[in-house]
């Protein structure tokens, strides 16, 4: 473990219907670092990420056991408002889903639902977060345009700006660059490196080279199990488990 843990996952078991999807997961996510969830397709990375945000609540027949502790609160067994809990986390999904409204309103959405109404403040904040996501220069003269008109790469950055505007502490990103060209991907990666000063970031990827570039902490998963985890330098230079070694060699993907 490097640094203080922001999220502690203990004995987490997730099943949907009769299918066990995550088995006895124990993971610690360090604060202000980039943690990469690595593993072949179908191993449960997306499910783990969504459990952190309680988006698994939307699925039929999910069964969650264990605990996820964020800021001393077990979010799986809590009475407090899930809505507030979700505001602590910004989510970037595998493909961008802009809201059906203008570019401006997309970023202002989270601000408005948390009660900010003053036009001046909204304008300042929208600009700030669009700059944060390196999108401002491309859209400042067409903020009223529908978000759906942006390119996929721009939409992904818009989703980042929109997520940051809610003022989260944690950023959850599910293969955020899978729909993007190499240049847009690099822009997102660089953004993450910058953002980790202020945010705890969890990124799902199965691109090994991307993981090497950005990871501080690595969690390697296989078929619903966490096989190995630790500081990136250690895991990449000296993996202990056979499965991890195989994966790094490109034995399966």
């Amino acid at each position: 473990m490097n640094g203080t843990p922001k999220i502690i996952i203990r004995n987490l078991n997730v099943s949907i219907g009769k299918q066990q999807i995550l088995r006895n997961i124990n993971v610690q996510v360090p604060e202000n670092k980039i943690t990469v969830l690595l593993g072949p397709s179908g191993c449960g990375k997306t499910t783990l990420l969504k459990t952190l945000n309680r988006l698994t609540d939307l699925y039929e027949d999910v069964n969650l056991k264990g605990s996820i502790i964020i800021d001393n609160e077990d979010i799986l067994n809590t009475n407090s408002d899930i809505t507030m809990l979700r505001k602590k986390m910004g989510l970037l999904s595998q493909r961008p889903y802009p809201l059906p409204m203008s570019i401006f309103d997309n970023v202002a959405y989270g601000l408005r639902i948390s009660g900010i109404r003053k036009k001046k403040i909204l304008q300042e904040k929208v600009r700030h977060y669009l700059e944060q996501a390196s999108l401002w220069d491309e859209v400042f003269d067409r903020l009223k345009d529908p978000a759906s008109k942006l390119s996929i790469g721009q939409q992904q950055r818009l989703c980042l700006a929109r997520g940051l505007a809610v003022d989260p502490e944690i950023i959850l990103a599910d293969e955020p660059t899978s729909a993007l060209d190499p240049i847009s991907s690099q822009a997102i990666e660089e953004k993450f490196m910058e953002l980790k000063q202020n945010y705890t970031i969890v990124v799902v990827t199965h691109i090994l080279r991307q993981a090497r570039r950005i990871a501080d902490h690595v969690v390697f998963m296989y078929l619903g199990d966490v096989i190995e985890q630790g500081p990136a330098a250690e895991i990449f230079s000296n993996p202990k488990m056979d499965r991890t070694k195989q994966y790094f060699k490109g034995a399966f993907n």
């Binding site: 939307l58 507030m84 979700r86 986390m89 999904s93 493909r95 889903y97 929109r162």
Partner: peptide, 18 residues
């Protein structure tokens, strides 16, 4: 409406009515 849009809305902290 794809579930991804719903997840996006929830993850921004909207309630179900919002």
């Amino acid at each position: 409406v794809p579930i991804g849009l719903m997840e996006a809305s929830f993850s921004l902290g909207s309630t179900k009515s919002e």
